[in-house]
Computed example of a mutant assay.
Amino acid sequence: MRILLTGPSGFLGSALVRFWAERGHDLWLLARPSSCLDRLEDLLATVKVMRASTPGELAAVIREAMPDAVVHTACSYGRKGESALDVLDANIRLGISLLQAIMEHNSLEGLPPTLFLNTGTVLEPGVSLYSLSKTQFSAWGAALAASKPQRLKFIDIRLQQMYGPGDDDSKFITHVIEACRQNVPRLALTMGEQLRDFIHIDDVILAYDRILERQHEFAESDAIDVGSGDAVSIRSFVELVKQVTGAETVLEFGAVAYRAKEAMLCVADTRRLRSLDWHPTVPLTIGLRRLIDLGC
């Protein structure tokens, strides 16, 4: 299968590239002109890298690649000083430009619908600019696919709290692990009552692959939860990290206030994913031990 993947420099994107490259898929990677692909340096000779940012450039990529599927992992979390326009550009404009290019190309060439696997969010729109923009793009994708099902198939993957080796330092899980590994004296936290669904990157990759393989079982505009299906409190998660690392760090629960509109429960309904013959293979304790043992 010919797959065009956005966000290849990221944690999820690079992991999917490695997995699908091993399985012989024809991979085309769409990256910003400034993106660094160090995570995939050893694979760059075996994949096609396309650099684009403007709508015209993105349309040219679609015309050249003619992908069977577009897997959209590119995003901006807004944690590194990005402006509101930067977040909108990464999380909405890029995706809509690709969707528009796909529909126009398929119309002109008389091609069958192209599958678009979107990496969505489970957070409510009011939590952050990231969740607002991701939710809005998911709605755009669903509406466009419903209006032109002969040109586009849109599946929104509602991804839960992913973790694994090589993840970004700016993320909460990495921050907690590094603090405990370095045995910092104190770690300021919220009360930790939020319930989260933690899923290892290996299980995420298998879920994406299974959805890709079984795409014929989805409607032209569809959505599916991807997570472990288990809810664990943030407090229990942090205490587990401390236990596994053997840290003496004092966990200051309640030192940080909850953010406005904090999501208190995020957990996947995995019934549909399990119906595709998928099940989680990496329990949280084992996943954390692997991660900590690797030192990354």
Rank of each mutant, 00 (worst) to 15 (best):
K80V: 11
D169E: 15
I234N: 07
D277L: 15
K171M: 07
D203S: 09
L58I: 13
D26S: 09
D222M: 06
P113L: 01
L40I: 12
A90P: 14
L108S: 11
G110E: 12
L251T: 02
M50E: 15
S236R: 02
G13N: 01
D197H: 05
R51L: 11
G110T: 08
G78P: 05
V122E: 09
A69I: 12
A15P: 01
F172R: 03
R23E: 05
D68F: 01
S83M: 10
H216E: 15
L27V: 04
R235D: 03
S35D: 14
W140F: 13
A255I: 07
E41N: 10
A65N: 06
E193Y: 15
R2Y: 00
Q150L: 14
F19Y: 05
F198H: 03
T121E: 03
I157Q: 06
T54L: 02
T174Q: 03
G95Y: 03
S138C: 14
A219T: 03
D89P: 13
Q182W: 08
I155M: 10
M191Q: 13
P55D: 02
V250Q: 14
Q136W: 08
A84F: 08
I92Y: 07
R51W: 01
I92N: 03
L132H: 09
D26G: 03
F218S: 00
E22A: 15
C180H: 10
L265G: 11
R271Y: 04
A101H: 03
T121L: 04
L187E: 00
D42C: 09
L251E: 00
A260I: 10
G10K: 00
T73I: 10
G254Q: 13
G254V: 04
E248N: 15
T174R: 07
W140C: 08
Y130F: 11
D209W: 10
L16C: 06
V256Y: 12
V226M: 11
S221H: 06
E178P: 02
V176K: 00
K171T: 12
E239C: 02
H279V: 13
M162R: 07
G120I: 06
A90Q: 14
G287A: 00
T285V: 14
N106S: 12
D203A: 07
L132S: 08
D209C: 10
L88H: 12
Q136P: 08
D202W: 02
L159V: 13
E124D: 15
C266Q: 07
E57D: 06
L4N: 01
D209G: 06
D230A: 13
L284D: 05
L294N: 14
V71N: 02
H175R: 15
A84I: 13
T114Q: 10
V238G: 00
A143P: 04
Q150E: 15
A69D: 02
L85F: 15
A139P: 02
V71W: 01
I96S: 06
F253I: 01
P149V: 08
A260K: 10
V250H: 06
I3Q: 00
M162E: 05
D209E: 15
R63V: 14
L144S: 05
G95E: 04
K148Q: 13
S14G: 01
G10S: 08
E82F: 06
Y163H: 00
G166E: 04
V267H: 01
F116Y: 06
A69G: 08
A65S: 09
Y130M: 06
I102D: 09
L43C: 09
L240C: 07
